[in-house]
Amino acid sequence: MSLPRAKSETGDPLLLTPGPLTTSKSVKQAMLHDWGSRDPAFIALNRRVLEGLAEIAGGDGLVTVPMQGSGTFAVEAMIGTLVPRDGKLLILINGAYGQRAGKIADRAARAWTALETAEDTPPDIATLSAALDADPAITHVFAVHCETTSGILNPIAEIADAVAAKDRRLLVDSMSAFGALEINAAKVRYDALAASSNKCLEGVPGLGFVLCREDALRAAAGNAHALSLDLADQFLALERTGQYRFTPPIHVIAALAQALDEHRDEGGVAGRGGRYRRNCRTLIDGLRDLGFETLLPDRLQAPIIVTFRMPGHPNFSFQTFYDALAERGFLIYPGKLTVAESFRIGCIGRLDERDMAGAVEAVRDVMTQMKVPTGAAA
């Protein structure tokens, strides 16, 4: 007999994805009002959001520069503004988002090189240090905090120490980690960090942002390869007028203001990260009991999204599995790996251990329906 269909508090399916994700009813309700983009009330609301984001990051010496669009807009703005036209970027790659940074550097006409490891392997710090010694032209290093291709947690503090020791500048894509995994600027030295509204902050899609060292940002004035992606120009306009240069995603910003209040009320980074870790543990333990195998060992697993190897039983069909879980109210993600056939299940958003336990039971129910006795890989 099938389990009851899972739903969010607004009756929608639960999104077991790395974002967009399930949001609270109160975050959705924050978008029910209209704001004038140049009205003092909206300007004050936006200022509160930008200051709140800098606070989460550790505050001192940081400014928040918002960027209309998805997280990739923020990453492209960060690379195109902070890396000088005559600079060179070293990109640490172990998944799709490191690879995307290379495509961005190409479009921005920035020289770059890469240190690439397999999707289940973090970058080696000694190899990074040696690469910086070998190539004095490298001015900046780009690293992904949590690479959602696999769910791997990269050693961002050690990377930052190695980059600083060689007197280079670090740019971080913390899209799937910021707000849940600590990356305090007082402890981890970076020039800029990109993230977005619709990941661990549990807002809605539409606003990326870059947390920048103010001195580095001011020094980058005139670097940008694109008008709309010029972080320095956006910052100077906000500093001067309190207003965006171009139309802001007003309703998204209002939702993020509410989401930040809820983040603070949950206990900030520690509280949000703690809930996600409990979700992740419930999911992994439950699916391992059904025979499923995780791609990553626990020591490399971020509590954001988990990659499971595809079951090897001949009755298993991922599309059937996906559709049957969707019918029960759980939407998961296909895999993106080159190293193994896989699928992914997210642990973030307005979900708790009960939701994850429900997802495990739904998987058990679907496996029985498919006549697949074990989730073990081939």
Rank of each mutant, 00 (worst) to 15 (best):
L231P: 11
L16T: 08
T149Q: 07
I152K: 03
C200M: 02
W35E: 10
R277Q: 13
L90N: 12
I91D: 15
G268Q: 00
R213K: 09
I156C: 05
I43R: 14
G312Y: 15
G329M: 01
A357L: 04
W35I: 03
C212F: 04
A57L: 01
R245D: 12
S150Q: 13
A185V: 09
G346N: 03
D12C: 00
F246M: 08
E9L: 03
N223L: 01
I250F: 12
D34F: 05
L207K: 11
L128R: 06
T338Q: 11
L128P: 10
D230E: 03
A254T: 01
V360Q: 12
D365P: 03
P311A: 02
T139E: 10
I250T: 15
A257T: 06
L132S: 13
T22P: 13
K166C: 00
A232Q: 11
R110N: 06
L217H: 15
I43W: 14
A302E: 01
G349S: 01
Q369H: 08
L295W: 12
I159G: 13
K199Y: 08
H225R: 09
L153F: 09
L32R: 12
P297A: 04
L300R: 14
T117A: 08
L337P: 14
F330S: 15
A270L: 00
G59N: 07
D34T: 04
L290D: 04
L236T: 12
A216C: 03
S26H: 05
A109L: 00
E51I: 00
L32V: 10
A177P: 08
A180L: 00
T148Y: 12
R309A: 09
T17E: 03
A237C: 02
L128A: 04
K336E: 10
G312V: 09
E361G: 08
G286P: 11
